[in-house]
């Protein structure tokens, strides 16, 4: 069931990526990166990611197409668990500070944020793209949504980086 769904989503995501290719920012971004080794479709729901783990080889460059099938905004951030925790604290501080939620999407498409973590914000029903190269100096990093509460409710997964 989930597999079937995933195939459909993957199909949609690649369509979206093609449609998006006409717009400028995606192209210019992509050209900064090494060639894409793999394109992976991810689904972000309320409150989960599918798949919820991933294995890559060092130096592998991946294009993530993340579709938000939930009702709420989500983000897809890559970093080690410590950096994720810091990011989470920051998001929580911000939420507490102004009493509003995080809807004012502070991540641009495929941009790294202030902590230099690759991150993308995905509104409900949309697909966003993130290109990322697995580093040589880490064995495991996490992908996560750090909107307050989302990580804790289940929106996190491990990326194993296994030597080639």
């Amino acid at each position: 069931m989930r597999k079937t769904l995933l195939t459909v989503i993957a199909g949609l995501a690649s369509t979206a990526a093609l449609a998006g290719a006409g717009h400028s920012n995606d192209d210019s971004q992509a050209s900064d990166h090494p060639p894409i080794d793999r394109t992976l479709a991810f689904e972000a729901g309320d409150m989960w990611f599918t798949p919820d783990k991933l294995a890559l080889t060092p130096g592998e460059t991946v294009r993530f197409n993340i579709t938000n099938s939930g009702q709420l905004e989500h983000e897809f951030v890559i970093g080690d668990s410590e950096a994720q925790m810091e990011h989470r604290e920051m998001m929580r501080e911000m939420a507490n500070g102004n009493g509003h939620d995080m809807s004012a999407g502070h991540h641009g498409e495929g941009e790294a944020d202030a902590d230099n973590m690759p991150a993308v914000t995905i509104p409900p029903g949309e697909t966003a793209t993130l290109v990322w190269t697995a580093p040589n100096n880490a064995e495991e990093v996490e992908f996560a949504c750090n909107i307050p509460g989302h990580y804790e409710a289940g929106m996190n997964g491990a990326i194993q980086i296994e030597g080639s």
């Binding site: 409150m47 939620d101 307050p148 509460g149 804790e152 409710a153």
Partner: peptide, 8 residues
Amino acid sequence: GQPIQPVP
């Protein structure tokens, strides 16, 4: 009993 958006 009703789900809410998670609050830490």
